[in-house]
Nucleic acid binder design. Structure first.
Lengths: 282, 282
DNA sequence: AGTGTAGATGATTTAAACTCATCTACAAGT
DNA sequence: ACTTGTAGATGAGTTTAAATCATCTACACT
């Protein structure tokens, strides 16, 4: 380039502040540096950018035009830079209520302890806040989702509140909470497969469906009921003895947790988060 | 600032060209310099901007966003810079047909000889091409125009084609070409004052008016007629013996040539032009 | 396997950027 | 009118950032 960018930055600042001294303060330089930059700029461009009347400076017509463009240009660059820097020291995640409430939020503190220079924000809901560097953790169909985006293949099992007695699967009528996704494109929970694998016919099982797994799990815990749900969501509850299972065998499903374009987040924070979440889920 | 602008420029170029090598060529640097800049940028921002797959690089999501903003920002700055630089090595003038045809265009070559690094463009007409660095040389009323903008106070006299015999002012009927400005706010040519100063009553003078002085002057030259017009416009024609005057005395007028905001053009080229034009007019 | 290309890495050199010391011009106070 | 203080200009000297060089790795294409 013909002229140095730092000279332009010095000019931009001086033009905006109307003083070399103030520009120098803004850029943590000496007024001398600003003066050098600007006279260098002027001689390279063959123009006068500032009128000098003794110790007072004011922009020429040319100076005004250049100042307008440089201010706009640098402002644009700086705001993008700000955004990127913010993205570098915070991780923002959006996911389902269930994963948020049962996995992410309980582990949030631990994540921030391990990564003291990162803060973690969790949000749930539909709002596809596409504008910024938010990492979406979604539930999807393994046959549709890009394999490299998947962070957890989902298995299902039946769980109940901790301490309750094992149900007698074949004799008495049983109420089982399960999930009917709002999104009809998602595969249903693999209840039929589970019954088969565990040698049950399910004739005495009455289903009660919620549109979020979290609700069924909470209901089961509150009412000493049974819930057919994801092993991912229950992992922590099992470990803390809030729920139990009954020696039934889990089944794989066509569902998975995934992050769209997982490998395409360029921030250190997102890389840390993705490593961490894969680690705690597996 | 947190990050260096040159690093950003290197990134911008590499992002746009999709290759460190091409960016290096564009910026007249070595690929090594680009690599250093970008890794420096990445570590300062705590993000990854490029995926490296062996010897191929591609932008990350973060990289794409930053590249968009930096490209826009730098483009804006560079285009303004281009404009300023062009303005530094060329001077564009717009003025009346008369001044252009009788003064500026005949002297254009001389100006470019004296200033071999400057080119001069002359345009006439109403088109107020306000966009760029055009210097307007206008005719105005001395009582309205800012004094410091004035480059020539206008005097008037009667001229005729070179070699014609002096008219006998009082005996025979005389046709005199003169000017009626299109712009009615401008003072009329000071014919009454001129008659008085030269001891004439004008009873035998028939006026024929054009809306540009140039036309009257050309008509007078073509038909051995007489024209009452500006001494500025006729100066060169007198010197080259294309017209003459008849020992009548010129009169000052309320008209002047001026350049709006004369002292506010910051370009070297405009300063050179303004010096030169004041010089040849006085 | 062999060759050529793109980029990474670390040490060294170079040049740009910054500061310091000194000077001028103006403005404000006495 | 004579200080005093402030903003900027100027030129020489210093510092540090930026660029290069030499070397190395990984991949792609014969």
């Amino acid at each position: 380039m013909q002229v140095s960018l730092q000279a332009l930055k010095a000019f931009e600042s001086a033009a905006r502040r109307g003083s070399f001294k103030l520009a120098a303060e803004e850029l943590s330089l000496t007024p001398t540096a600003i003066s050098h930059h600007i006279s260098n700029l002027e001689s390279r461009l063959n123009v006068t950018l500032f009128h000098r009347k003794g110790r007072r400076v004011s922009l020429t017509g040319t100076g005004v035009k250049l100042a307008k463009a440089t201010s706009d240009g640098f402002r644009k660059i700086e705001s993008a830079l700000d955004e990127v820097m913010k993205a570098g020291c915070a991780v923002r995640v959006t996911t389902t209520s269930s994963l948020a409430a049962l996995v992410l939020i309980p582990s949030q503190h631990e994540f921030e302890q391990v990564n003291p220079d990162l803060s973690m924000e969790i949000s749930t809901g539909e709002s596809i806040d596409n504008q910024s560097y938010i990492i979406p953790v979604r539930v999807g169909d393994v046959s549709v989702v890009e394999g490299s985006d998947i962070i957890k293949y989902e298995s299902f099992n039946v769980f109940g509140a901790y301490g309750m007695t094992s149900p007698s699967w074949s004799n008495e009528p049983i109420t089982l909470f399960t999930t009917k996704w709002k999104n009809t494109l998602l595969p249903d929970p693999p209840l039929a497969t589970w019954l088969e694998k565990n040698g049950l016919d399910g004739a005495n099982i009455k289903l009660k469906k919620f549109d979020q797994e979290l609700f069924g799990i909470q209901k089961a815990m509150a009412e000493n009921g049974l819930v057919f749900c994801s092993t991912t969501l229950t992992k922590r509850l099992l470990k803390t003895n809030l729920i139990q299972h009954f020696n039934t065998r889990p089944v794989k499903s066509d569902l998975c947790y995934y992050v769209p374009n997982k490998d395409n987040f360029g921030t250190r924070s997102s890389a840390k988060f993705l490593d961490w979440i894969e680690d705690i889920l597996n």
